[in-house]
Design a protein around this nucleic acid. Structure first.
Ligand SMILES: [Zn+2]
Ligand SMILES: [Zn+2]
Ligand SMILES: [Zn+2]
Ligand SMILES: [Zn+2]
Lengths: 125, 125
DNA sequence: GCGATTTTGACAATCGTTCTCAGATAGCCC
DNA sequence: GGGCTATCTGAGAACGATTGTCAAAATCGC
């Protein structure tokens, strides 16, 4: 079973305080700047756990970094992300879900999963 | 202007000979195994060029590797990829293109780009 | 063939991430 | 509270994909 530590709480809180997607390293830097003595490896582990439990969304940036964001809606959803400021809008689109399932089935593919993210420049940028 | 070298030709050929997506390292290993003295850095550079020129598709695997594949259809398209054998089907879906553009516009996002890939297990796996 | 310019490749450097492992700690039983 | 034990933590090393370096080699226009 998972133990409750102040480190995990701190990571969860720091992540929630952020608007858009953050890297593990950035979050660690922010925590240290706030006076926390938390270790980098711990931040990585906590973020991975949050993502697995569905409490955080994760995606890979174009240069291969893993980015995380506190989840707002609980269910399956996608993102519209500002490539400049990182501001993120959560999107639900049944049409996409159905399309993905249908396309997979039509080609004989089982257990379909999909990656759908939209990037753009937001109104304030 | 781009120069024509046997190295680039070899990379292009090796990539075309493959069915699904390959990593730069795998392709390099295959080339070496075939007797070619080509360097790893050159394979990376050639693949990046192919992707830029639209002659190869590229995507990031879940563990952060860049994968490449010889392009069949020329225009913008997406992929249905077998998570087991790598077999890939190219997909064109105007509905998705329109949906992405519309979702971006509705939220005030300009210059939308999107990532859409479907993974599954193909019929033969 | 010549020369300017580009490309190559061995190797080092980078950088995000994971591993290691000894010490700290949460949760549980008494 | 005190003690026990499995889990968690963190400093640093290790790792692995990718990129940078730079001298030597190759291309292409002349
Ligand atoms: Zn913005
Ligand atoms: Zn979806
Ligand atoms: Zn398959
Ligand atoms: Zn598209």
């Amino acid at each position: 079973m998972k133990r409750q530590t102040w480190q995990r709480a701190a990571v969860r809180e720091a992540l929630t305080a952020r608007e858009g997607f953050v890297s593990a390293q950035d979050l660690h830097t922010a925590l240290k700047a706030g006076g926390s003595p938390i270790g980098l490896a711990t931040v990585y582990r906590a973020l991975a756990d949050l993502a697995v439990d569905g409490d955080a969304d994760s995606l890979q940036s174009s240069d291969g970094e893993n980015l995380y964001r506190a989840c707002i809606s609980q269910g399956h959803h996608h993102h519209l992300i500002c490539r400049s400021c990182g501001r993120t809008v959560e999107i639900e689109a049944d049409a996409i879900e159905q399309w993905a399932a249908q396309v997979a089935a039509a080609n004989g593919f089982r257990e379909p999963r999909h990656i759908v993210d939209v990037f753009g420049t937001c109104a304030s940028c």
